[in-house]
Design a protein around this nucleic acid. Structure first.
Lengths: 334, 334
DNA sequence: TCCAGCAATCGAAGCGATTCGACTCCCGGA
DNA sequence: TCCGGGAGTCGAATCGCTTCGATTGCTGGA
């Protein structure tokens, strides 16, 4: 089943079929209809390889997914499916790369013209892949924000502002001592952007609003969360507001608070940062900054498509955080 | 950077370079070395599209991932990464398709020769994609087991035997009334193979061993698990053994049991079915049948590669369940 | 000595699309 | 009437690789 079969069936030349399909030259309505009918009748699908060879466009993009510990998997999947769905909306498919493939993997798929561009996730402040991305012959978009964005295209939630918004919300409610329950220690150690920026924004806002603040990294296992929570209560008994930047920690933390005799929000205010799904799993419903994974994935794809169309978008796109007040935060107990 | 550049650099013809790279004809060691040195020196990567066009092999496989509710996402990711890693071990890349693409998506990527084969997950007993898979011009492998496997290649854990093993373990411990806490109701409603087969094996073994059994589907939210657990204790107070085939339910269930005054394993034995990671999140360590997601993904890829090499493997590969006894199960309280 | 047969290499013909001129009409203005 | 120019279509070149003979040069057995 080739393009020449379609052409014969429609009584035109192969190039005409090609132009009908690509719309790159004007075709008379009558011919267009006839060709499209033949395409449908024969169930013609252009050969992807031949197309890629002739047009030097594969209509595939690569998505490099992190597989490391400390990454909350459901959020990852939200990103991935959003990227795939958006890409399909732009006539592109998605090739899956793992972080383990690293820089060589990026270079391989790009240099072999297997993909038209690359989306990379889980960016560290000083990510080793960045110099590779800069030297690639095809465009790329980062979901996340490294320290130096020169010559890159990045999209992310403004985690600094998110940390700040959470702290200010607690300050507005009159809290004086607040804590950030963060990501697992390893995430900070490898200087992952979103974790570090949340922390920065949180601490800065706390300082500016005259609150004492403490930060506790926290592993994802319920037992670890319980231990961290109890330690917080023990070592910082006057903390009345907690920001949780760690999705799986929210529920165990709320339970540990109750177990420790602290009622939420009466005795303790809890503010989360994460996907909206969190809310449905939580009692009481969580005051939180939502992480718009779906929108971020879509934006990343759009930006990449812009670059494929030779539009050079701005280097950094930061989505402003939206904090939704629900029932887990309240005024400081007097 | 083309193959002819490499050829010139090495002082041979393009076809010789091709044969060096593919190993399909014998090449003298001296020439091979020289060519490989040129490839390395120039950083040559063959053009994927040209290669696919000429060889009618894309060296890409498609993986169709389910995105439905009721699927435990971390397990999904284990499958996905295992498939990607294994595929790379066979010189293949992985194109990501979502369930939403459905049969049209499968046909599109296959008919356009974008992929050499397909791996499909989350198979239902009577899956609409199956007839499409049978009619495809390229091979496919299912992770999961539909009702009719004629002409297909399937690999899965033997969930029937797993359900049976769990029931028998409880029977061996002297339990008389047992329960299965299962997947969300929607999973059974759409007749997903692994859920249904576990249930069948569990009930059959319970019957054969003279135990009374009850089955409760269960949603994944902690609150729903707690409610289900409490209902179980209320309506079936004599149940002393529980099989949990629902990963996120395990921890809330254990907590609910404690809250209801039942000590595990003294008063209540709990047996799980799921990935080994469960164990690390659990107190006490869980007696369980492990779901070898990694091995299943690897097997699926191997089977697909066999089919690409024109070896027709057996239709059904079921991995035997391995039940590991830990501290969550014990003899029935007397 | 001759030739069969193998190892090593080359040249050229595809693979199935895209795309760039070139060509043919046909229309409207001079 | 003639000509310029746009719309619509076609033919042929091209993309970069694989692969199928064909060729060459040896080696070893008859």
């Amino acid at each position: 089943m080739r393009i020449s079969d379609v052409a014969r069936h429609a009584g035109v030349s192969p190039s005409t079929v090609s132009y009908v399909l690509s719309g790159k030259r004007s075709i008379s309505p009558a011919t267009r209809e006839r060709v499209l009918a033949s395409v449908a009748a024969l169930g013609y699908q252009p050969h992807a390889g031949a197309r890629a060879l002739a047009s030097s466009r594969s209509n595939v993009i690569a998505l490099m997914l992190p597989l490391r510990q400390g990454i909350h998997v459901p959020v990852l999947m939200q990103f991935a499916t959003s990227v795939v769905t958006s890409a399909r909306g732009h006539e592109h498919d998605v090739l899956l790369l793992t972080q383990a493939e690293g820089e060589d993997g990026l270079r391989r798929v790009v240099d072999s013209s297997m993909v038209d561009g690359v989306i990379v996730m889980d960016v560290q402040m000083d990510d080793p892949r960045i110099s590779t991305l800069r030297s690639l012959s095809h465009p790329s978009v980062l979901i996340g924000l490294p320290a130096d964005t020169t010559g890159l295209t990045c999209v992310d939630l403004d985690f600094d502002a998110a940390g700040q918004a959470c702290a200010e919300h607690l300050a507005d409610l009159g809290h004086r001592e607040v804590a950030l329950i963060g990501q697992p220690p390893s995430v900070y150690e490898r200087r992952t952007g979103f974790a570090e920026r949340t922390l920065t924004g949180f601490e800065r806002a706390a300082r500016e609003r005259g609150m004492r603040s403490v930060v506790l990294p926290c592993d994802a296992q319920p037992a670890a969360v319980t231990a961290t929570t109890n330690r917080l209560f023990r070592e910082n008994p006057n903390v009345t507001g907690v920001v949780v930047h760690n999705e799986p920690a929210v529920t165990p933390l709320l339970e540990a608070a109750v177990a420790a005799g602290r009622r939420v929000p009466t005795d303790l205010s809890v503010v989360g940062i994460g996907t909206d799904e969190l809310v449905t799993d939580t009692q009481p419903p969580l005051t939180m900054v939502s992480l718009p994974a779906e929108e971020l994935g879509g934006r990343a794809v759009s930006l990449l498509m812009d670059k494929l169309d030779d539009n050079e978008p701005r280097e950094v796109t930061l989505l402003p955080p939206r904090l939704t007040v629900r029932s887990s935060s309240a005024a400081r107990p007097s």
